[in-house]
């Protein structure tokens, strides 16, 4: 049986050769074992740069924003994991991508490796390559040594709670679908809700105090696809430039609010935060409330479904003292 990586390379080469697409977006290896980066392949002979390994976490859908606007009317092939497909659908719902111009190759994903979990246990020493073999990870060191560890212990937390590992949108699915066995995703939110208001505030004040306003959370987010962000406006000046606590809180609250009903819960915001603010919990709190008050809704699953915050029912419940 061919492995997935070979299939990916083959498909990329073929579709470029046949002129079906002008660009293929996939992943390629960086210099270090944990670096699986977006790759932009325009020529058939470059297709062998493409890889698939358990570190291919970057969401490729967002790169369409740039590429589609540059390549007027040209077609692009894109490899999508479950979360990437949700992201793609969200971009579609936001009119930020064009379905006809994108060929989606779906990759069922059984979870990706969180390098920090390996580092924490010192498993990154001399590491050169990580492979997935069923329920195990194969850690290959420089000297050809191999070590096997249970995969589940080293996957991203967000992957453990993933509800859509199999892409919901694709033109062609590559590989077998994987079983869907998510852990409860609202545990973190519920834990925070056990705190009283003072402690909740202190918790978030401490988290936000670390924010350096690098905007990585915004830049990676498939729901933050505005051409010009409201926070970058000079006039009106919604948000001060200082990393003052209230400004930081303002930024994170409004950012979460802006993706309310549109967040696909891919968890990329938390992953890319250089100061480890658990941003996904903010989004999940809003998802939980929307589900509770206005009915279950999974952003990105069906781009035709109306997002919960742009519609209403006349008998909607309210969360005010007066209902």
């Amino acid at each position: 049986m061919k492995n997935l990586q070979d299939t990916i390379r083959e498909i990329a080469a073929q579709s470029l050769a046949r002129g079906e697409v002008e660009l293929v977006i996939g992943w390629e290896k960086g210099d270090l074992w944990w670096q699986s980066y977006p790759a932009f392949i325009e020529e058939e002979k470059e297709a062998d740069r493409l890889i698939w390994d358990p570190l291919c976490v970057p969401n490729l859908s967002r790169y369409l924003l740039q590429e589609l606007s540059e390549m007027d009317e040209k077609k692009i092939a894109l490899f999508v994991k479950g979360c990437d497909a949700l992201a793609f659908n969200q971009l579609l719902q936001d009119n930020r991508t064009v379905r006809e111009r994108v060929v989606l190759y779906g990759i069922p994903c059984d979870g990706l490796v969180d390098p920090s979990k390996l580092e924490r246990e010192g498993l990154d020493r001399d590491l050169q390559e990580v492979e997935r073999d069923g329920e195990e990870l194969v850690l290959k060191a420089a000297a050809g040594e191999e070590k096997r560890v249970p995969a589940k212990d080293y996957l991203y937390d967000k992957c453990l709670t993933c509800r859509y590992p199999n892409p919901v949108a694709y033109d062609q699915m590559l590989g077998e679908t994987v079983p869907v066995e998510p852990e409860e995703r609202f545990t973190g939110v519920r834990k925070l809700e056990e705190l009283d208001y003072e402690d909740r505030f202190s918790y978030w004040a401490e988290q936000f105090s670390r924010c350096i306003r690098c905007f990585a959370c915004r830049n990676v987010c498939p729901a933050c696809s505005c051409i010009k962000c409201v926070f970058d406006l000079q006039e009106p000046r919604w948000l001060g430039k200082a990393t003052e606590p209230s400004e930081n809180a303002f930024y994170h609250i409004i950012r979460a609010y802006h993706v309310a009903g549109r967040c696909v819960d891919c968890g990329e915001c938390s992953r890319v935060c250089p100061v480890d603010i658990p941003l996904q919990e903010l989004n999940r709190k809003i998802i939980l409330d929307i589900n509770e008050l206005y009915g279950e809704y999974d952003a990105g699953v069906d781009p035709e479904q109306e997002a919960p915050l742009i519609t209403y029912k006349t008998d909607d419940p309210a969360a005010f003292t007066e209902s």
């Binding site: 809180a249 709190k285 409330d289 969360a319």
Partner: peptide
């Protein structure tokens, strides 16, 4: 409603 609950969460 969503905002009020969210501010409570904060």
């Amino acid at each position: 409603s969503i905002l009020r609950r969210f501010l409570g969460f904060m």
